[in-house]
Nucleic acid binder design. Structure first.
Lengths: 258, 258
DNA sequence: CCGGCCAAGTTGGCTGTGCAACTTCCCTGA
DNA sequence: TCAGGGAAGTTGCACAGCCAACTTGGCCGG
């Protein structure tokens, strides 16, 4: 059930990804110990029969994932060895659930088409007067409700979504068949109180806290393809991030107006 | 008040950071437009008088921050231009607050020394019988309570923390003077209900929802220096992340036991 | 026994080169 | 008018080499 197309490491071809995948495997299986030192770049280059630059590219992947340190003058050190392998799962609830061995489900509660409001035009970069498709879906893990998903699609995507059967589990996978790819996303995570719909669908009290993830996703060309707001029941999921002074993609910011 | 030592871009010396900083400035100021195309790598190399490899290194920084796309065959495209500049602020509440123009405050509620329990030994990688320092601090923005911070330090760090005055605003800055650096961190974000202490300090009801960030921080060598649990009042902060199929450091995972 | 200096080892940074894969756009031909 | 082919442009990937900055550990001297 692993989806090669969504796994950066194991995808076809390039040398540095193969090296990265092999090193990741070795690290997570404990070959280098809890806080052990990795071989030098030169040694790895010789072992794999590649240039030092290629090894460095592979190690940059592992460093970005928080698996190893990286500082001038000393060998790399294992930071953590108990880590999930693929980190691109944030782009698809379905893919994430399956990679955990859970059975994802989705039930379409409503779907409508209407003119985009100002905020939606801003997020999806649409012209005034453009229309959007708005969906409300209840998502489940192995049958139990976990999350309410409100998604706004630009019309050229929404037209395809509207044709999907109401009980389809994944939206991104059939869209991929039509050449619509979800590759980049900005996420904002905070807490919000459940409204009447949330409470009814998730089976919680109105006003009870939910973990909210707002997400704007773009395709490889940078064109926005969805703007979504997911509300999770507390205790079902947590978000995990690694950051380092040497480059990261996370920030904490004060709440602006919604 | 900008802290050069914590700003990856503007820090001294290297060419690719200067190029990255310059390009970031140009992008966020709108020089390339909303979804505009960047110049080709070769053109940038010539403009800055550096090699193409150096330009690529600079662009990798911007790509990791979610500022531009990056795909084979076509020029890079601006993804978003309304972004805060430094993304390494997650390592220090004080530094983050100041970069927003807010006045951070901190009041030590309690500090004690005791043997580490099993979970703490696991997180801080301590031997059985090792002792830890535990602090409880109320943190404020411009005077208003925002967050309760519970931090566990290994003794070699805690001994220094214990000597700081109770009203010191930043812990990481004086520790840096002693050569203890906070460079890498793993964060986990979820929702939790306020307990009696939280409610008293933050002025909210017991059981009301708080945004929780658990964080394990290591120094450049990979040695854990703190394990902290921060609880934010809703509506005060949100966490923001960018991820891409081309490498990221974020994952969503099911809750395990605490 | 301790402190400091020095050499070896290691990663960071930068350059230059070459080719493959891919996108875009124009032009041609039906 | 539209589909297709092809050329030009651009990024991804890999190789090789060089030096600087930094860490570590051992040796030497006090």
């Amino acid at each position: 059930m692993t989806d090669v197309a969504l796994d950066p490491d194991r995808s076809v071809g390039t040398l540095y990804r193969k090296v990265a995948a092999d090193l990741r495997e070795a690290i997570t299986s404990g070959s280098y110990g809890e806080a052990g030192r990795l071989p030098a770049e030169g040694a790895l280059a010789e072992r794999y029969g590649v240039s030092r630059g290629t090894v460095r590219q592979a190690l940059a992947v592992l460093r970005a994932d928080g698996l190893v340190t990286s500082r001038r003058g000393t060998r790399r050190v294992v930071l953590g060895n108990a880590r999930v392998q693929s980190f691109s799962e944030l782009l698809s609830f379905t893919h994430w659930a399956r990679s955990m061995g859970e059975e994802p489900g989705g039930r379409l509660e409503s779907l409508l088409r209407r003119p985009a409001d100002a905020a939606e035009r801003e997020q999806l970069r649409l012209e005034p007067g453009a229309e959007v498709y708005v969906t409300l879906r209840l998502r489940t893990l192995s049958g139990t409700p976990v999350m309410v998903e409100r998604t706004v699609y630009p019309s050229w995507v929404g037209e395809l979504v509207a044709q999907l059967p109401a009980d389809v589990v994944s939206h991104t996978e059939p869209l991929r068949e039509h050449g619509i790819l979800f590759t980049d996303a900005d996420h904002t995570i905070d807490v919000v109180a459940a409204n009447a719909d949330d409470a009814r669908l998730l089976g919680c009290r109105r006003g009870s806290p939910l973990l909210r993830e707002r997400r704007r996703t773009t395709d490889p060309t940078g064109i926005p393809v969805e703007w979504s707001q997911d509300r999770y029941l507390p205790g079902t999921v947590a978000f995990s991030i690694h950051n380092s002074l040497a480059s990261s993609a996370l920030s904490r910011h004060a709440r602006e107006g919604d």
